[in-house]
């Protein structure tokens, strides 16, 4: 019997042009639509229909979109921008449902709870929890610094907030808003929970990666990054934590006794800075892309070599897997969106 094929590749299927710097893309749960935010402020809805990707602009955030997030299990998507507003859109017809001004400062980050019932937004030092109808459910006490990233854990009971000098974890289960603080004296730029809930990780402005074991509270620091660490993410199976602050993607193996005292796996396939990477939902693939105009497909559990490379003709700004893990959308700084399909060869 033949060995199982290791050979996967990305094949371009469809593309469209946003005519704006692609800041963020968010897939609808059914994988048929994409909400897209542009650096100059466009908010667009893209539909994938076989080999056709049609894109229509539905609105804007004056001076730039900062965040876009699609409601899990739902048909709404949220966007926020430099105009200090937060908008909720109907992903079916593209209509703007409502627009809020959570604060007199831009909303930097958005995160839907995994059940799609609530939306967290971070503007300045304030974090607010909204219902999908735009009702304010809770306003957390202002932090000492600006909240720059948000993330729910997998069950949706905890909301992590990246701040200067700490990660705040707010318990949001059954409206009990308790807060636990994970402190480290540097600015946190990202926040990730491992899927199994055991670890909390953050990329930091001092060029280090910090993570905490949530049951013991023990923390560890991985140093040596070349500048601010703005990209971090756990693989879907919680085995690896990927990170990048340059042209390499660095993986820490959380299998066995964990990554402490181990050397990381270094994925070396880019010649320029990596600006985005994404782990495959329900799978083990990782895609990365950035300034060297190439999209690289990895399967770190099997090999540290790229298993596929797609050469483009522009710098990529964002990569996102479809919820079923079969497609990847790649957004370019020049505005093009391309849908790739993961295929076995």
């Amino acid at each position: 019997m033949a060995k199982q094929s290791l050979s996967f590749a990305l094949e371009p299927r469809a593309s469209a042009n946003l005519d704006d710097y692609v800041m963020e893309c968010a897939w609808s749960p059914d994988g048929k639509s994409l909400a897209v935010g542009g650096g100059e402020g466009k908010v667009a809805l893209a539909r994938l229909n076989g080999a056709a990707l049609t894109l229509s602009t539905v609105g804007e955030h004056l001076l730039g979109t900062l965040a876009v997030a699609w409601q899990p299990h739902g048909h709404l998507f949220a966007s926020a921008g430099q105009d200090n507003s937060l908008a909720l859109w109907d992903g079916g017809d593209g209509r703007e449902r409502l627009r809020l001004k959570p604060a007199p400062t831009p909303t930097q980050a958005l995160a839907w709870s995994p059940d799609g019932a609530s939306l967290a937004s971070a503007a300045g030092k304030g974090v607010t929890l909204w219902s999908s109808l735009g009702e304010k459910l809770h306003t957390f006490a202002p932090a000492a610094s600006a909240a720059v990233a948000l993330s729910f854990d997998k069950p949706g009971t905890d909301l992590g907030v990246a701040l200067n000098g700490e990660i705040c974890v707010h318990r949001v289960e059954k409206s009990r808003y308790e807060t636990r603080r994970y402190k480290w004296p540097a600015a946190c730029l990202t926040v990730n929970f491992s899927g199994n809930g055991r670890f909390l990780a953050t990329g930091m402005a001092d060029g280090s990666l910090h993570f905490w074991n949530r049951s013991t509270g023990k923390d560890s620091q991985m140093r040596g990054y070349d500048g601010r660490l703005e990209l971090t993410g756990f693989s879907d199976n919680s085995r690896y934590l990927a990170s990048s602050a340059g042209h390499e993607v660095v993986l820490w193996d959380f299998g066995g006794k964990g990554p402490e005292g181990t050397k990381p796996i270094v994925l070396n396939g880019h010649t320029e800075r990596v600006d985005s990477f994404a782990w495959q939902p329900g799978g083990e693939h990782l895609v990365s892309a950035g300034r060297d105009w190439r999209i690289t497909l990895w399967r770190p559990g099997k090999t540290t070599q790229p298993i596929d490379v797609q050469m483009g003709d522009a710098e990529y700004s964002v990569l996102r897997w479809s919820p079923d893990g079969k497609f990847v959308v790649a957004g370019e700084k020049k505005g093009r969106l391309t849908i790739f399909e993961l295929v076995a060869r």
């Binding site: 900062l66 540097a186 600015a187 402005a205 700084k333 505005g335």
Partner: peptide, 25 residues
């Protein structure tokens, strides 16, 4: 900047805004 020197402070808000400004074509 966490290099042990209290005078090494930078503006976090500026870093974010500058990053966002660079995302305009």
């Amino acid at each position: 900047t966490n290099n042990g020197c209290i005078c090494c402070t930078v503006r976090g808000d500026l870093i974010r805004i500058l990053g966002q400004l660079m995302k305009r074509r």
